[in-house]
């Protein structure tokens, strides 16, 4: 089922044309990796999917992005609702300087949920899904900043899960972590894929190859190739793709 459809998407930072005629379809319950050298537009594209680029004054978007059949840049779209449906995890773990519990419950709080029992259950469920419950169940009141980097990142994933999104965006989620934590995140992605659609930007090509079903290669703002991951990594159709993944450049 087509969940995310990008049609002739062009994006600009002021005069800078950063995304050129992007056409991409992402299906439900798949993991899609966006790869490419620095500055190729993959992060920009990721952020168009939950309108995080809105906060940059000079940003403009032309074209259409539909999620579940609805144009997310239409005038009457409530951005806050969109962001609860399309969650995001950032490169550097950024938990709120509050307790672990409050971090995960934040999404529910801003929705106006007051039912304590409901919140407690949801927090536990999200922490379990993020493979963090066992490690923090006795210290839910401790500051989130006292956790290790890998744990903080899983906490950020948990707080996103708490509002039951259908799509999770990840912007280089493991790049700031040590190899062991990074591997745990990969494992987590594999588990989450059953219930969620995941789009992940990564510089680590082996990671992209390991976790994703399909891979999109971006270069200087263009979508050069988009294919099944196993195909793209054994027999890329485009010479630029081959040069990038074999390390011949960038």
């Amino acid at each position: 089922m087509k969940q995310i459809v990008a049609e002739d998407v062009n994006a600009y930072y002021g005069e800078n044309h950063v995304l050129k005629n992007i056409n991409l379809t992402i299906r439900q319950n798949t993991v899609t990796a966006l790869i490419g050298p620095s500055g190729c537009g993959k992060s920009t594209f990721l952020r168009t999917l939950n309108r995080m680029n809105d906060y940059i004054d000079s940003f403009r978007l032309k074209g259409k992005i539909e999620i579940d059949g609805k144009d997310i840049y239409a005038k009457k779209v409530k951005v806050e609702e969109l962001r609860q449906k399309v969650g995001i995890v950032f490169q550097k773990p950024n938990p709120f300087p509050k307790s672990i519990f409050e971090n995960v419950a934040y999404g529910l709080k801003i929705q106006g949920t007051k039912d304590k029992k409901f919140i407690n259950e949801r927090v536990e469920r999200s922490l379990r899904q993020a493979a963090l419950w066992a490690e923090v169940k006795d210290i839910l009141d401790k500051s989130a900043l006292s956790l290790s980097g890998g744990q903080q990142q899983r906490l950020c994933i948990a707080r996103t899960l708490a509002v039951k999104p259908s799509i999770i965006l990840m912007d280089e989620p493991a790049s700031a972590l040590d190899p062991l934590s990074s591997a745990k995140i990969e494992e987590l992605i594999g588990e989450l894929k059953e219930k969620y659609t995941i789009v992940i930007v990564t510089h680590n090509m082996q990671q992209a190859a390991r976790v994703s079903d399909r891979t999109a290669f971006f270069y200087v703002g263009e979508l050069v190739e988009y294919n099944k991951t196993s195909e793209l990594f054994t027999n890329p159709k485009n010479k630029q793709t081959e040069n990038y993944i074999t390390g011949r450049f960038g």
Partner: peptide, 14 residues
């Protein structure tokens, strides 16, 4: 830090 605001906006906060 802006990362805090980003995290909050990313959660759907106004």
């Amino acid at each position: 830090p802006n990362s805090l605001r980003e995290a909050s906006y990313g959660m759907g906060a106004t």
